[in-house]
Design a protein around this nucleic acid. Structure first.
Length: 571
RNA sequence: GUUCUUGUAGCUCAGCUGGAUAGAGCAGCAGUUUCCUAAACUGUGUGUCGGAGGUUCAAGUCCUCUCAAGAACACCA
């Protein structure tokens, strides 16, 4: 339908007796009216008022008289209060949309803007030995969706799970294990027990400053490669990964690399050396820092603690060096909560002092998202008030099962999983990333209205209609005029927008744009379905409607796939 | 205190890079299954777009100020 826009722009250009305004400019001004009664395209004449020294409504009126629509795709033109409204021949809209779809079919919406470029997506990055709660869900789900979206746009995409497997917290755990390890059997529910130990040692640290100091010393030992500490650390890590993989399997999330913070522990010295060489390191209160006040950041970035041990900023910097060399990335995005805004601002600034090519430092981007609260407040692993992802998913799955119990379906187990998990993923991708969210179980388990199951249901519906028909018609067998009613046109126009939606979603790193779009398509199909009998004796109209059903099916499936949601065969 | 983010219907949120009468879902109420799956569809809303100024032919959208909520602000990540 871009071709139609082009035609309109040309028509307008030819009608304007002023060469200062070119087609490109006009094309940018052309918009799609919200109200259908205002046509398919509209050209606001206000911007021309100054150039042409005429009132907008007069310009519109003149243009209307000067534009010759004979032999074009334009049915009629109306001039309404400064707007020039274009009504396009409906069958042309249908034709244009179908031809565009037919080129790609199953790959509909796929783009090539990223061809030859590589993007790294760091996400999930849970802390070892801590329960995977709903606070970690957003980064995992958003990151996975972005990974899919970039890939669909032609990028070579690499997913990184930057495990939180380092730091004083570990030393605390080791200290706790030393004290009470014998009381726990780590062969089952390891994470629950480890977090219990973590909770206990934290309480002790709060009571006794000496214990905290002991933990800091233990961290130094761990960093120094102390055998006992490293052995424990490895054990904890393996136990944790096993638990995380259970959830990643459920969510169908995969990582190309699990290199956590510890991996960079021996790569930090280089960061310090380069910064030192470039004269960027200063001593402050015993610590080595990079001052960033000239960059408008008041807080300095700590590179080395006063006791000589490392800090996470240094590890992130080492990771940037490593990734630039290993992956030669064009873009490296970090899907991490907004509470780390300052941290990434600092790290990205300091990265510019690491003698890296600008390509890399310009490609760094923090994709932040809002916080999740429980109705009773902030979640805290230490205090033990959190909702585990595993529990949430299981609850969602049993809810799906419950709804299905009276239906005769095969493999309800599988369907319940697809629907239950789809609902949770969808819920997390529905709103703009940045919004804070108070977790509401009822809302998460609501399967009616603008939800995952709703969109899945519509996708399944397209499948069963096609199944019942037993064939997918050929493009050439479609009579475009069958699809010119309001509900068909609306659906057709929406489907035609898919590529623009994907591009927009990628540009903004905002999967919710696709989520909302999928609801729009599903809703439009539902209305179309209710208004039109698809399967009928009339072969002409059946073919046309079946083809639109096929277009809807592919669009919904691809949209959901980008979000990381499966479509069941039946539900 | 400083910086960042958010503020749109009872609740949760859309609102494209300023454009025509600000939209959905949920909750509520009232309807729709001899007809391709009712996880559906139809109808039903008196909104100071947090407030005040300003820019513009045009502001929910841009600028300034202000109020409220959340977050961050040196050796946790």
């Amino acid at each position: 339908m871009d071709d139609i826009k082009e035609v309109i722009a040309k028509l307008i250009e030819n009608a304007i007796e002023n060469s200062e305004i070119n087609t490109q400019e006009i094309k940018e001004y052309i918009e799609i009216p919200k109200e259908e009664s205002n046509g398919d395209y509209a050209f606001p004449c206000f911007k021309l008022a100054k150039v042409l020294r005429q009132a907008p409504n007069q310009i519109a009126e003149n243009l209307k008289n000067n534009i010759i629509t004979d032999g074009t795709v334009i049915d009629k033109i109306e001039s309404v209060s400064g707007y020039l409204n274009f009504f396009v021949d409906k069958s042309q809209i249908v034709k244009s949309a179908i031809e565009k779809f037919d080129i790609q079919k199953k790959d509909y919406g796929k783009l090539d803007v990223g061809n030859g470029k590589r993007v790294l997506v760091e996400y999930s990055s849970p802390n070892i030995a801590k329960p995977f709660h709903i606070g970690h869900l957003k980064t995992t789900i958003i990151g996975n969706a972005l990974y899919n979206i970039y890939k669909y746009c032609g990028y070579e995409t690499i997913s990184l799970n930057h495990l939180g497997d380092y730091g004083t917290q570990f030393a605390k755990l080791i200290e706790g294990y030393k004290r009470w390890g014998k009381e726990y059997d780590l062969s089952t529910n390891a994470i629950d027990k480890l977090s219990e130990i973590y909770k206990r040692i934290n309480e002790l640290c709060e009571e006794d400053e000496n214990v905290l100091e002991e933990c800091r010393q233990t961290f130094k030992k761990l960093e120094g490669g102390d055998e006992y500490c490293v052995k424990l650390w490895n054990e904890f890590k393996e136990l944790s990964l096993k638990e995380f993989d259970k959830i990643y399997d459920l969510l169908n999330v995969k990582f190309d690399s699990y290199k956590g913070e510890a991996f960079y522990s021996d790569k930090m010295q280089e960061v310090i050396d380069i910064l030192e060489k470039n004269g960027k390191l200063t001593e402050s209160q015993g610590a080595k820092v990079v001052d960033l006040t000239d960059k408008g950041i008041k807080a300095p970035c700590i590179i080395q603690k006063s006791n000589g041990s490392s800090i996470y900023a240094t590890r992130d910097l080492a990771a940037i060096l490593y990734r630039a060399r290993t992956y030669d990335f064009d873009k490296c995005i970090y899907v991490v909560g907004e509470e780390q805004n300052l941290h990434f601002k600092q790290v990205f600034e300091v990265a510019k002092y690491l003698d890296l090519d600008e390509k890399y430092t310009n490609g760094l981007e923090h994709v932040s998202y809002g916080m999740i609260f429980l109705p009773e407040g902030k979640m805290s692993t230490r205090k033990g008030n959190f909702v585990k992802v595993e529990d949430l998913l299981n609850e969602s799955i049993s809810k799906a099962k419950e709804i299905m119990q009276d239906r005769s379906l095969e493999d309800k187990e599988k369907i319940a999983k697809q629907v239950g998990i789809g609902a949770v993923i969808f819920e997390d991708l529905k709103e703009s990333r940045i919004k804070n969210q108070i977790f509401d179980l009822n809302e998460a388990l609501n399967f009616n209205g603008e939800t995952g199951p709703y969109v899945q249901y519509m996708a399944v519906r397209t499948k069963s209609v096609l199944d019942k028909a037993g064939y997918v018609p050929n493009k050439d067998d479609v009579d475009f005029n069958v699809l010119t009613d309001d509900s068909s046109i609306k659906l057709m126009k929406l489907i035609n927008n898919f590529d623009k939606i994907i591009l927009n979603s990628m540009d903004k790193n905002e999967p919710s744009i696709i989520t909302r779009y999928s609801v729009d398509v599903a809703k439009a199909y539902s209305i179309f379905y209710n208004n039109n009998k698809i399967l009928s004796e009339d072969r002409e109209s059946q073919n046309a409607r079946l083809y639109l059903t096929y277009m809807t099916k592919i669009t919904l499936e691809n949209a959901l796939k980008l979000l990381g949601i499966e479509v069941p065969e039946k539900m």
